[in-house]
């Protein structure tokens, strides 16, 4: 078994694993120094393969578009490393997970979470207030939709949405925490007076994205794309 998952390092470096296998490998990688080292050396090889790809040169407009976009985007300062040390390779993996999540909708639909809030409305409001009052909280911009995601030092988070119309009749809003490629439900909620303050009932790890979809009343087991709002990677 150990040998089998170790051998996946090559497929992972070549981006040739199926989504479920990719996730299983990343979980394994977190605790396997041997695979981390092997992966780093395989990435050097794939980097050489990239340089040898022999494709055409990009249009000069691409450079300007990237720089314009970067400038327009209020850069979210993500102190990934200031809170806790993680291994360099794992840090790269986290960054890749974040990049993968950027597109939202490219993830495999597999759901591990359970639906609905476990907290009462009152305690949810209290936890939201605690997060918003946390001096160490970081604010993450939304990639789409209007509002922001506030993440406290302990990973608890509140999604604040502005200009959110009431959900259509028979529908509800549902929040999702997307870590890597796996969206996990963070419960359903409604909009009041064009605004919603949504406590996320689970911790939001570095690299994760919080997204909102419109679902049938009662919520769905997997998100219906496209999302109506999505944060930048935390």
């Amino acid at each position: 078994m150990e040998t089998a998952i170790h051998e996946l390092t090559a497929g992972y470096a070549l981006d040739a694993l199926e989504p479920t296998e990719r996730e299983a490998y990343e979980r394994h990688l977190a605790g396997c120094a041997r695979c981390q080292e092997e992966l780093a050396s395989f990435w050097e090889v794939t980097g050489a393969l990239a340089a040898a790809a022999d494709g055409p040169a990009p249009s000069p407009a691409l450079r300007e578009r990237i720089l314009d976009e970067a400038r327009a985007e209020k850069q979210t300062v993500v102190p990934l490393e200031s809170r806790r040390r993680i291994s360099p390779v794992l840090a790269s993996v986290t960054a890749i997970a974040a990049a993968v999540a950027i597109g939202l909708g490219i993830y495999a639909i597999s759901l591990h979470g359970q639906l609905g809030d476990t907290k009462s409305a009152l305690s949810a409001q209290q936890s939201a207030a605690a997060v918003l009052a946390d001096a160490n909280a970081t604010t993450v911009a939304l990639k789409s939709g209007s509002g922001r995601l506030v993440v406290a030092g302990d990973g608890s988070a509140v999604l604040v949405l502005d200009e959110l119309p009431a959900a259509p009749s028979g529908k509800t809003y549902q929040a999702w925490v997307v870590t890597g490629r796996v969206p996990v439900s963070a419960g359903t909620f409604t909009s009041a007076n064009g605004q919603a303050i949504v406590p996320i009932p689970r911790t939001v790890p570095s690299g994760a994205v919080v997204a909102v979809t419109v679902e049938q009343a009662g919520g769905a087991a997997s998100p219906t794309l496209p999302p109506v709002a999505a944060s930048d990677p935390v």
């Binding site: 981390q36 080292e37 780093a40 990435w43 990237i66 976009e69 970067a70 985007e73 850069q75 979210t76 300062v77 993500v78 102190p79 990934l80 490393e81 360099p88 390779v89 840090a91 790269s92 986290t94 960054a95 974040a98 990049a99 950027i102 570095s206 690299g207 930048d232 990677p233």
Partner: peptide, 16 residues
Amino acid sequence: FLGVWRTAAGFRAERA
């Protein structure tokens, strides 16, 4: 590249 822009703080140069 926008992923780089957003997550550069997570990059560590010891290995990669």
